[in-house]
Simulated scan of single mutants.
Amino acid sequence: MELLLASAVGILTASGIYLILRQRSFPVIIGLSLLSYAVNLFLFATGRLALNQPPILNKYAEAAYTDPLPQALVLTAIVISFGMTAVVVMIALSAYLSARNDRIDMTDETGEDA
């Protein structure tokens, strides 16, 4: 199970970085989303989930319990990444509507670097 989770985090991270390095705005947005999913999986995996165990330490939990902090961090990260994605999509859409192009490059219209 650990190999599957580590592979998923690695593949999501690699795919996200590849898409961020593209020169179009839509793949950059998808790449940021994939990176946020990879970070969420990594944070969730740090909780060392124990099946059928309570999320708090009490007298009925013998030795194992599920740490609730990573779950709270992942929930917060999901909300923040949703808001960030919405803002980035609106910025990319407004840039596309004003320039009629979705390329992300650092050159002006004369071809010189800015």
Rank of each mutant, 00 (worst) to 15 (best):
E2L: 15
A6W: 10
S7G: 15
A8F: 10
A8T: 14
V9H: 06
I11V: 14
L12F: 14
A14H: 06
S15C: 09
G16M: 09
I17C: 06
I17Q: 08
I20D: 02
L21Y: 03
R22M: 01
Q23W: 04
R24K: 10
S25G: 08
S25T: 06
P27N: 14
V28N: 01
V28P: 00
I30D: 01
G31M: 04
G31Y: 00
S33I: 04
S33Q: 07
S36R: 01
S36Y: 01
A38S: 13
A38Y: 04
V39L: 09
N40E: 10
F42R: 15
F42K: 13
L43P: 06
A45V: 04
T46N: 06
T46P: 08
G47S: 02
R48I: 15
L49P: 08
A50L: 03
A50Y: 14
L51F: 12
N52I: 05
P55V: 07
P55D: 03
L57A: 11
N58Q: 09
K59A: 08
Y60P: 11
Y60R: 13
Y60G: 13
A63G: 11
A63L: 08
A63H: 12
Y65T: 14
T66R: 09
T66L: 10
P68V: 05
P68A: 12
L73M: 12
L75H: 14
I78W: 12
S81V: 07
F82L: 07
T85C: 00
T85R: 01
A86F: 01
A86T: 00
A86N: 05
V87L: 13
V87Q: 09
V88C: 04
V89I: 07
V89Q: 00
I91T: 12
A92C: 12
S94D: 12
Y96W: 08
Y96M: 00
Y96E: 00
N101R: 01
N101L: 00
M106C: 14
T107A: 13
D108C: 09
E112T: 14
D113T: 09
